[in-house]
Design a protein around this nucleic acid. Structure first.
Lengths: 260, 260
DNA sequence: TTTCTTATATTTATCGGATAAATAATATAA
DNA sequence: TTATATTATTTATCCGATAAATATAAGAAA
């Protein structure tokens, strides 16, 4: 007998209820702070068992969309838009490909905030940055400690005044640490090469550029500080297109680095 | 009587189990594709009821961390890192502040991908872009249709080759549409002003810059195309610092625009 | 022995009952 | 009117039961 099922019913009841609840909140124009009906009423209204309702509510609770103070009721809350993202990142169950995508994402974002930073920066910020640079010692390969690195970049993000951007950077930080460690052997020689060629953009250079330079100059500094990463990503990309071996990547990588 | 409770026990059993499961997968070095124990065994192992387990599993399922084919078992899957983000955005329960943060996020990101785009672009991409520009008619105020706008920017993101960035842009698109509509009356006069001053960067300008220009030039074009938005965000920021009235914002807004 | 069919066990999805606990609302007492 | 006690409500949690579909084991047929 032919199997005439068009699509496997992949959407569980819980999935549907979850969406139904979202639609309900939206169409009723609920706002954060409004209290919503109890489990039992919802279950009756939608016509499903209470375990299904509870599972759906549990998801919304996880996303920070509702809060339920035990034995008092549930209220809608302003969702923390990155809570789901944070959880997935924290699992550290990500593939290399995914993490490299995140690396590219973060680099693009940081380059992109250059304008906001340049626009918003004030004396206090500059003082803080100077202090961070002062405290952050470099090792013999012109590398900063992870702590100093994090502190410096966090400050840049902070200057944007955009809480979502700030939180994003905080969340993916562990991924960057992981990648830095995993591909340490690739990055180190590259960075040494850049340092020798005098093209390395240090934290101090960035601060000086931010203090004295123009918008475009600062933007360029921000781009250049990521040169090694950008080449790395580019190499990975061309590799995956041409299905080359990992050693080729490293070769490409080093060629690209010295071209720029 | 004083309330001596230090902290309200905000962490439910489900929250704890959710984290316990994550830790379990991580410490056991589970990888995507591995099948995990059934609900019953997990419930016994952790020592909680099966509804608690089910709620926690439901959350992980929502995040795309596990997949459970009915009556066969559960397997770990490569999580789709933006699924939680997508759900929260889709609720459209976000405050103006949050949405403006997202606008800033998106603008920064798009400015930041300029380098990646410039690095990766090929003939095919350019052809596609030209075709989109060709098709996309502007209205009398030099504005594109939403569809053309979306098509053009999607293409730029696509050139990065970074799937996470591409998905991000797709997810927040409705938010941008919403904001564009909500603050339409603010943006229109500004854009007309920019157009009159001859500083407006059109889609065609961007394509030409990408084709013939240099990296820095393209970067500047990308920044300039967002000038109106950047001024808007800056105005909102200074307003919230000085607690000004909305009308002041509009004034600031228009002053900033014509300064640049 | 190999292959096909059948029966059993397993497992998730879903339902719904029961209990504990804490707050809100109500009723009662001072 | 105020203070206390009772009741109702509601979520959190546990548990049992059923349906459905698959995997596995057992049995029958070639």
């Amino acid at each position: 007998m032919y199997n005439l099922k068009i699509t496997e019913q992949q959407v569980s009841l819980v999935d549907q209820v979850e969406e139904a609840l979202n639609n309900y909140f939206r169409t009723m124009h609920f706002k954060p702070g409004d209290s919503i009906p109890g489990e039992q009423k919802l279950a009756e209204a939608i016509g499903v068992g209470k375990s299904v309702i509870r599972e759906a509510l549990s998801r919304l609770r996880m996303l920070g969309l509702i809060e339920s103070r035990p034995r008092r009721g549930m209220v809608l809350t302003e969702p923390s838009i990155l809570s789901g993202f944070r959880r997935v990142i924290n699992t550290m169950l990500l593939s290399d490909e995914m993490m490299l995508d995140l690396l590219g994402f973060r680099i693009s974002l940081e380059i992109g905030i250059a304008d906001l930073v340049f626009q918003n920066v004030n004396e206090k910020h500059l003082q803080d940055l100077e202090e961070i640079v002062e405290r952050g010692a470099e090792n013999e390969f012109s590398e900063y400690s992870h702590e100093s690195e994090y502190e410096f970049h966090s400050k840049l993000y902070e200057i944007t005044g955009n809480d979502t951007i700030i939180e994003f950077q905080e969340i993916i930080h562990p991924v960057l640490l992981f990648l830095n460690n995993k591909f340490k052997d690739y990055f180190l020689p590259i960075n040494i090469g850049i340092a020798k060629s005098g093209k390395l953009v240090s934290h101090r250079d960035l601060v000086n550029c931010l203090k004295n330079g123009d918008r475009e100059g600062f933007n360029n500094c921000m781009v250049e500080q990521f040169r090694a990463y950008l080449c790395f990503i580019e190499s990975r990309r061309t590799m995956s297109q041409r299905s080359e071996s990992p050693t080729d990547v490293i070769k490409d990588f080093q060629i690209n680095i010295y071209k720029s």
